[in-house]
Design a protein around this nucleic acid. Structure first.
Lengths: 112, 112
DNA sequence: TTCCATAGTTCGGGAATGTTGAACTATCCT
DNA sequence: AGGATAGTTCAACATTCCCGAACTATGGAA
């Protein structure tokens, strides 16, 4: 067998967290421009640590949650760390606010 | 002929401008989450009146511009009025800011 | 008035994205 | 080991986006 099946490259152990300077404003807004992701972010303000199952309304498919968390992570909005068999997600408030001053606060303030 | 061919219903003469209370935060962010549309909005701050051709970088296809302006209009960000054979687009700053206080200003401030 | 140039919309099809069930990896607990 | 839990990846389908071509509409020139 000459090729190895490579599941989970850089995923299970090495989650990629971008440098905020590589995140464009459009990408940041895109990440926030979705009701499900807005809810996740708002929830993370209340409970600073959420795993995938608790991040979304129950009933949301696992793969969908995984996708949304990927988008948020790629936009520099959350960081994910592996904790046993779960992944803990936290907001990257400081980093994000340094790159886009006031943006997250304004969005959240407008998110009734 | 029993049916009339109805191009331009509510388009050429009756452009639809939504009530801002019917615009969701996600929709507003989605409208802003695109480099081309961000440029249009930023340009409208400088020159308060733009037609379709002057709104975008030259070379952008007409149908694409038309689409982007539709998205911005549907999000309550711009208003369009027919002026002779062109359509003049203006920002709905006041309306938008009443619905989403500070959002437009913060986004534009971050769009350096 | 007829013709032409300009301004922008609508349509259609291909490209790019988003969604989600199924299969999989990984870890913890008996 | 075996099972339960947590989440990722894949693949297929669905939705959205992009843009050329055809069209409507208006204004001005011949």
């Amino acid at each position: 067998m000459e090729t190895t099946k490579c599941f989970y490259i850089g995923a299970m152990d090495r989650l990629v967290h971008p440098d905020l300077k590589d995140v464009s404003l459009a990408a940041a807004l895109h990440a926030l421009a979705d009701p499900v992701r807005l809810d996740i972010v708002a929830k993370l303000v209340e409970c600073p640590c959420l795993n995938a199952s608790t991040a979304c309304a129950q009933g949301t498919p696992k793969s969908t949650i995984s996708n949304h968390l990927n988008v948020l992570r790629a936009a520099g909005l959350i960081e994910t760390s592996v904790e046993g068999r779960e992944r803990i997600n936290r907001l990257r408030c400081t980093d994000f606010d340094a790159r886009f001053p006031g943006l997250l606060a304004t969005v959240l303030a407008n998110k009734a």
